[in-house]
Design a protein around this nucleic acid. Structure first.
Lengths: 203, 203
DNA sequence: TAGTTCCGAAACTAGTAGTTCCGTATGATG
DNA sequence: CATCATACGGAACTACTAGTTTCGGAACTA
């Protein structure tokens, strides 16, 4: 058995992993999820299909992994104000989802993963939980500052931020420019019950 | 050519349209979009595949049409307050999307329709525009009452409501119960810059 | 050296979207 | 009534794709 995590035989080539992820991302951007084929990914990556299926059980999981890959759970610097933190958060989310290919892939996957418990659990663990934790940090910082009366439901806040960005981009097909600030001001008003400073006009 | 809209030859049977829609909805609920097959729809509906393709150019369009079918643009009674109107609105949206099959189908379709201009235009015209109009009515009523200072961006409000419900159900897999009230109170605070009446705790 | 796992490549299976044709049914037109 | 155009269910058919298996060979461990 050798050392933990070190199996006998030839070890996997990290470059193969990277090539698969890169090819999947490129093709998702070019042809979308429905147009994505395993043969095309293998050809673009210069690997055999066996190498792909050794790593990913199915097309959806591969696309999911390629999309999620590298979405590291950044921590946000304390900007000193709730509005500043919210703006940074909204900009990060809009940046992640601003690429139409990424948001389209996530939509397709959310629709198709369905009740497959393993995938859902993986998705929640890998993506959602760290994000909610980030939201919670920001909210708790604001509560410590006295900007918030009571700690709100972090999952609701997360749903509002992510869902709004998704709908803005994919339902209304509006440009992401300016969305982060609008959304941050909206969130700030909702959370503090007070209009944010600067700009007297509406949302 | 005869009368406008009336072609020569045997006219289409409305019952076939209805059977296709019904079969598609049932199967979407049972097996999801990815598991949906044209042969199964044809068999369940008791029609030939030709009859389906005479009406719908592709599987995605068929599923889309079946999902959207019958989503009439209700008008909401004036409850007398912004919070009441928002609650009614959120309950309606949560009700529409509360069926996991419906929301999953919409997610898949949004992901796959992509840049197909015809489908996007149809979707915007049939679903999104009437909904945004409803939102605008509610917001204008509130402005007339003096509850709102300036009319906010109706498309942003629409994105927040629909996107939040979607994320709540499909990302977090939380039950729709209680979501409408939470969301309405959140929206109310964001729009008016004041905490809604009743219940002193946070969002 | 022996055993295990990896690699690219190719052949293969199984299943689905979408098309085409058949014989028949149905309604409009003359 | 006769004709024409289209719709109908059904079945056969094409083209394509997900996923599996197999191959000779390479890389690593023990």
């Amino acid at each position: 058995m050798a050392i933990e995590g070190q199996r006998a035989g030839r070890p996997r080539d990290d470059r193969v992993d990277a090539a698969i992820v890169a090819a999947t991302r490129e093709l998702l951007a070019e042809v979308g999820y429905a147009g994505l084929t395993m043969d095309a990914v293998a050809a673009r990556a210069g690997v055999g299909k066996g190498a792909i299926y050794r790593r990913h059980a199915a097309k959806a999981e591969m696309a999911f992994a390629a999309t999620v890959y590298g979405m590291d759970p950044r921590t946000f610097a304390d900007t000193g104000s709730l509005l500043g933190d919210l703006t940074a958060l909204a900009e990060a989310v809009a940046g992640d989802l601003g690429d139409p290919a990424a948001s389209r892939a996530i939509m397709s996957l959310l629709g198709e993963i369905g009740d497959d418990t393993a995938s859902v659990a993986q998705f929640l663990k890998a993506c959602v939980e760290p994000e909610v934790a980030r939201h919670l940090e920001i909210l708790e910082r604001a509560a410590d500052r006295g900007e918030l009366a009571a700690p709100p439901d972090a999952e609701l806040v997360h749903s509002v931020v992510g869902g709004t960005v998704m709908a803005w981009l994919l339902v209304h097909h509006r440009a992401p420019d300016g969305l982060a600030e609008k959304l941050a001001r909206f969130m700030h008003a909702a959370l503090t019950g007070a209009a944010p400073p600067r700009e007297s006009d509406g949302v």
